[in-house]
Design a protein around this nucleic acid. Structure first.
Length: 501
RNA sequence: GCCCCCAUCGUCUAACGGUUAGGACACCACUCUUUCAAGGUGGAGAUAGGAGUUCGAUUCUCCUUGGGGGCACCA
């Protein structure tokens, strides 16, 4: 057995954002290449100039980089190979494997309809006045014409790496265009020509290309090239069983990125669609996937994209990821003022990140949980619902917050365990359950009834900020602007009404 | 219409012909607890249907049904 270094490629057409289906295809190619120590290449199928743009190409490049799918060679642009495509088409013609077609598309459509009814494939012999003098004349007259591949009798069999042996009868295959009358190549020719040129050994692509494969194999053979190994990956469907599209919500890599999904999570999730490591592992990063990947574990069945599982995985990766690496991501999602302040306190940002990453499923939610830690005093807003519930009785609340204030004011060391000891003691002195003290306090410190553990919050806020926040809450209560059951929904304090420090 | 492909819990999946058909997401209950999460424990939930082959089929074969893809001078 000779072992050739595998060379694979991902070949998207730059007609929009990188679709998750495309990303999955790219990923499998990448995983295979890395696992085998082969090369992973990128080819932009920009033959169709009208639907392509450099902008879209850059978006694809960005998305792949974000996912961590590094390419081994500069991207190839299919459009640049057009001369070779033409030359290959000429070779087909010279070898008697193609014919010139002077018929218009309308004429062809008519012929096709007729043949379809009769159950016969399109062949050159079906064209009126084929061959002979007429063709020669029209050619000499310089009439534009397309080149059609001439499908021979027989059948084509290939051993698909995921589907196994597959055979197609040529009788079911029409002769097909390889070169348009304007001299541009058609997909099936261009791909084969490029894959030969790039030395591609394995073609891993979506299921939807399965029925193109026999045509391409015929071209390979006519061109005298060695066949690559083909592997057709199952499609990714939406919840309704239809092919995944924008209708199903986010369908592009970019969209998930904007929704706060980590690249690790998306890669992990995509890898698990149509493939599994064989054991019960689910949460894996790119290197682990590379290590575990093998083509023979690819499924044939198409799979449904489940955004909820993606989110769960994202949560897992959030927990796995170090605060150092997460903090910059979080920082970007903070609003201006909070971002500035967080940036000025990298240590605190890191600690806050550690605290919130466990309870978040997206970086978005991580950011919104981290935000209150950095909100300037006069901008803190108290959640209305929480205030109605936990600050219901202003007097009582004031008494309790004041007690907490005293405790904190008397402490130099804001250590988690010490805080817990003192505050629990305070609660029992007041003769109330811990929750009755902690919830109003949480609201005072964070403006919300939901936050990380209260002792962590205090420790992280630090002495000065904790005290000033409690003071502000006390003032707010005194002014009766929050928590009063009689007041309307506008009772919550606003920036404009905020007390000065 | 013709051709091709596919079929295990709602979803992602495991089970080289012999398992009480396993795990994960989601769901439900309980638990932990200062809130929200996370975590822990438990529960419900599948081999599409029908014929074969076999001592024995999720697994092999065929049919049906269902789903997907393709049949362009698109890629």
């Amino acid at each position: 057995m000779k072992s050739v270094k595998p060379r694979v490629r991902f070949a998207p057409s730059p007609t929009g954002y990188l679709h998750v289906g495309g990303a999955r295809t790219a990923l499998f190619n990448y995983l295979f290449a890395r696992n085998q120590g082969g090369d992973f290449l990128l080819r932009i199928e920009d033959t169709d100039r009208e639907r392509s743009s450099g902008d879209m190409t850059n978006q694809i490049l960005d998305a792949m980089q974000w996912l961590g799918l590094e390419v081994d060679e500069p991207p190839v642009h299919q459009a640049y190979g057009i001369e070779r495509h033409r030359a290959d088409a000429e070779r087909l013609l010279a070898g008697g494997r193609a014919w010139r077609c002077f018929a218009t598309q309308d004429e062809l459509a008519e012929i096709r309809t007729r043949l379809r009814e009769e159950g016969r494939p399109l062949r050159r012999s079906e064209l009126p006045g084929h061959g002979g003098a007429e063709t020669a004349e029209r050619l000499a007259a310089g009439e534009p014409h397309a080149l059609f591949y001439s499908v021979p009798d027989g059948s084509t069999t290939f051993d698909d790496i995921v589907h196994g042996p597959t055979t197609v009868e040529h009788a079911h295959m029409d002769d097909f265009v390889v070169l348009r009358s304007d001299g541009t190549p058609v997909y099936n020719l261009a791909v084969v020509s490029d894959d030969i040129d790039m030395g591609i050994t394995h073609v891993l692509r979506g299921d939807d290309h399965l029925s193109n494969t026999p045509k391409q194999i015929l071209i390979y053979e006519a061109l005298g090239a060695m066949l690559p190994i083909f592997g057709h990956l199952p499609m990714i469907l939406g919840a309704d069983g239809k092919r995944l599209s924008k209708r199903h919500g986010a369908a592009s890599v970019e969209a998930f990125r904007e929704e706060g999904i980590l690249p690790e999570a998306l890669v992990n999730f995509l890898a698990l669609l149509g493939w599994s490591p064989g054991d019960d592992r689910e949460v894996m990063d790119l290197p682990e996937l590379v290590e575990a990947f093998s083509l023979d574990r690819i499924l044939k069945k198409s799979s449904v994209f489940d955004p909820e599982k993606l989110e769960w995985l994202n949560g897992r990766h959030l927990q796995r990821k170090s605060a150092e690496r997460l903090a910059p991501v979080l920082l970007e999602l903070l609003p201006g003022i909070e971002r500035e302040r967080a940036e000025a306190e990298p240590e605190r940002l890191r600690a806050v990140t550690d605290l919130v990453k466990t309870r978040a499923r997206t970086v978005e939610s991580m950011a919104s949980q981290a935000r209150p830690f950095f909100t300037p005093l006069d901008r803190i807003e108290y959640d209305e619902k929480a205030a109605r519930k936990h600050w219901k009785h202003a007097d009582e609340t004031t008494e309790r917050l004041a007690a907490v204030r005293d405790v904190l004011a008397g402490l130099d060391d804001f250590d988690h365990d010490l805080l817990e000891e003192r505050l629990r003691a305070a609660a029992s002195e007041l003769g109330i359950g811990a929750g009755k003290l902690f919830q109003p306090l949480r609201l005072a410190l964070m403006g919300s009834a939901e936050s990380p553990g209260i002792f962590d919050v205090i420790a992280l806020l630090g002495r000065e900020r904790s005290l000033e926040r409690i003071d502000r809450a006390l003032e707010t209560l005194a002014e009766g602007r929050a928590g009063s059951p009689d007041e309307g929904p506008e009772a919550t304090s606003r920036e404009s009404a905020g007390p000065s420090e």
